[in-house]
Structures are given as structure tokens and as C-alpha cells.
Write a protein that binds this DNA or RNA. Structure first.
Lengths: 197, 197
DNA sequence: CGTCTATTTGAATGTACTCAAAAGCGGTGG
DNA sequence: CCACCGCTTTTGAGTACATTCAAATAGACG
């Protein structure tokens, strides 16, 4: 697969933002393999070992865990230009706890751990990029943690609607309920309450 | 301050685990300044800009945020050998949202952002160390996120008691309640319920 | 059109919350 | 050493809110 076939944001990220030259970028791209998922397919399930990172070229997914009572809890959604992996499994080599399921048909660009590591030694900018990436994920997780606990469910719903209205165009309400940590019925009543005032 | 005055685990981390030689280690240590906090003192408050990392030499603290209704939510506790910082503020340079308050008298080893950055260029192993650190924090945050949402409050309490009994020796129950995202009264009743069966 | 799934609505239940007050505990100073 | 004060934890009573189970409606897809 040639570099020019990659999505614009992906190309920009590595050429403009990171200053990779064309040769480096071609080398980099050659290590990705394309993968498609149909809606409802799983990219990852609990117990599987992740040895790749996946760039979301198209579509969206939900990452969730199942608790001791069999309940699903969505940790986050992923859309275009996000990176998907169960990082605990990826770095430890142990089976992961996360599920990743496509909510739309998806196109992924997958790079194996080995190839990524090779890239990091061949293209020094990669290290920096991944460091920054890691840092941002970190901050996002801490913020998500603050949000999960803050305010009433109505406030959490309104904030999500305000900050990420696009989610409501693409993700069924039941999953948004899980993300907000409430039952679908409660979300339905909550939405009613809001529109009737 | 001489390297040999640092806590054993700290010395091990950088000499044994990271393979820093004595000279590098002395250089490294020279950039830390000691800081003490009295119980209940704040190391950080919302709105302040963090430009340092702090190694917890002694004591423990709680990191929390205050939501729109004025409620405190504890994100995590920190004990000996942890690193403290509002990483969002640290990396963005913007005012942070976190509070860090000492729960016991504390001794910290503080290194400024500038000095740490200088160290990273002077001692190449530092980069690697910080990368690994970052990664682990990341995973810890994702796990914390899973836990906050999983199971009943009773199950979360029991799991904490099982995995981190030492916390109960050092942290007042009201803060454990906040960590578990329940009111102190509810925690009290919950504990009663458990011991009476 | 029919089936399957998602969303809404209803009614009853339960759990955690609030407000309020009592009991317990630790530390300080007389 | 004891008495007092402040803070933490517990207990009580009433309330609010999300949950559960159940069923009806609405939408999506073949």
C-alpha cells in the first residue's frame, strides 16, 4: 500500500506534523496492513492478546469491559483518526480485559508490535510521536475519570451532547447510556425530562 | 543533596533498574529540591500551573477534583515511591483542575520541568524511564476507570480492602468513600452490613 | 410485510442520598 | 490526668432517583 492511499489526516500527521520525509513515510506505510470489520464484529475480546495497534481509517467502535455481574461498561468510543489497542495487553503480553466492537463498518490500518518497534529504531521521530500520543491518552483518561464521577447523570448527558454532538449521530442511545453509566430506560426518561422544559 | 541520601527504592530505580552509573545519578539527584508538607497542606490547587514533578519520599496524599456542584471526587491516592503532578497542566502549561492534599506529613523530592527536560537530553536512559512510567500510569488510569464503573459499591469496597488493605491504615474513611464514589454515611452502613454476616 | 432490535413508557422496588443528631476519637491545654 | 473541643464516624428517618421487570411502540433491514 502506497503512502498516498492513506487518509489525509494520517498523511498530514506524519509528514507535516512530524516532519517525516517521503521516503520515511513510504517505509512507514509499508508496515501497515488493511483490515475491515463489519458492523457488530469484534476487533478484540476479553482474553485475547493484542500485538498490534490499529489506526481507525473509517467507522467507529466501542471499547468496553464486562464486570463480575455480567454488565457491560463502555470506557470510550473510537472514531476516525483514533488508535485502537488494549495497551495493557499490548505492553504486558498478557490476555486483555477489553472488548472492542465495531458500531459501523470499519476500515483499520494495523501495524504489528514488532514492525512498530522496528519503525521506532529506524525513524527516530516515531518515538517522540508515540510519547506525545501516550501523554495525550493519559490526560484523556484522567479527564474521563473525573467526568464519570462528576455531576448528575443529567449533567453528564448535557455535557456530552454539548461537547460531542456528533456521537449522537452515530452511536445508538443504549451505548451512550452505558458510556454515561446509566440504564437505557433512565436515559430515555432523562431525555424526555429535558425536552419538556 | 547527595544521591546516597535518597530513599532506597529511589536509588534502586535509577541505579539498578535503569543502569545509571554513580556519576549520572549524582547529577540527576542534584536537580531535586526537598519540600515538606504538613498534614492537610495542599501541594496543588485548582487553577495553579504545575511545572514540576514530585517524588513522594514519605507520607501520602489524595488527588481530587471538585465538580460543578461543589462535590469532591478523589481520583487516586499517592504513597511512597509515587510521582505527583497534574500532568495536564504540566504538559500544556495551562492552569490545572486537580487538588493534591497531604493526608499525613509529607516529604517530597521536587524536580522542575526545565531540569527534568535537561536531564532527558543529558541522560538518555531518562527518556526510556519516563516512557515506561507514562505507559504504566496510562494503564493504571484505564483500570481505575473500569473499576469505578464495575460492580456494586459493596463489591468495590471489598476489592479495595482485598487488594490494598494498607490504605485503610492510613486514609480516613471519608476519603475512601470519596474514592469509591459514595457518601461517608453510605460507606459506614455498608461496612456494618458486611461485618454482620 | 414480517422479524428483530432499539427505544419508550408504566408501575413497583430498592438503594443511596439528604438532613439531622448522637456517639466515638484524638489532641490540646488547663 | 482529665476536661473540653473539633473532627470523624455512626445511626435514624424520610426522600429522591435510578433500577428492575414488563410491555408497548417505533425503527431498521431483509
Amino acid at each position: 500500500m502506497k503512502g498516498r492511499d492513506f487518509p489525509p489526516l494520517f498523511i498530514d500527521l506524519f509528514t507535516k506534523t512530524m516532519g517525516m520525509d517521503e521516503q520515511e513515510f513510504e517505509l512507514f506505510c509499508s508496515h501497515f496492513r488493511e483490515m475491515t470489520l463489519r458492523k457488530k464484529d469484534y476487533y478484540l475480546k476479553e482474553g485475547s492478546i493484542t500485538n498490534a495497534k490499529a489506526y481507525v481509517k473509517k467507522g467507529c467502535s466501542r471499547t468496553f469491559v464486562i464486570d463480575e455481574n455480567g454488565k457491560e461498561h463502555i470506557l470510550f468510543f473510537a472514531f476516525e483518526d483514533w488508535w485502537l489497542a488494549d495497551f495493557e495487553s499490548y505492553h504486558s503480553g498478557n490476555p486483555g480485559k477489553q472488548y472492542v466492537q465495531a458500531l459501523e463498518d470499519m476500515e483499520l490500518l494495523v501495524i504489528s508490535k514488532q514492525d512498530f518497534a522496528k519503525m521506532e529504531t529506524e525513524i527516530s521521530k516515531m518515538r517522540l510521536w508515540y510519547e506525545v500520543k501516550q501523554r495525550k491518552m493519559n490526560i484523556a483518561m484522567i479527564n474521563r475519570l473525573s467526568e464519570v464521577k462528576s455531576g448528575t447523570s443529567e449533567e453528564r448527558y448535557c455535557k456530552l451532547l454539548d461537547k460531542h454532538p456528533e456521537i449522537f449521530q452515530r452511536v445508538p442511545l443504549q451505548y451512550i447510556a452505558s458510556y454515561l453509566d446509566i440504564e437505557p430506560q433512565s436515559l430515555s426518561r432523562l431525555r424526555n425530562r429535558i425536552t419538556h422544559k
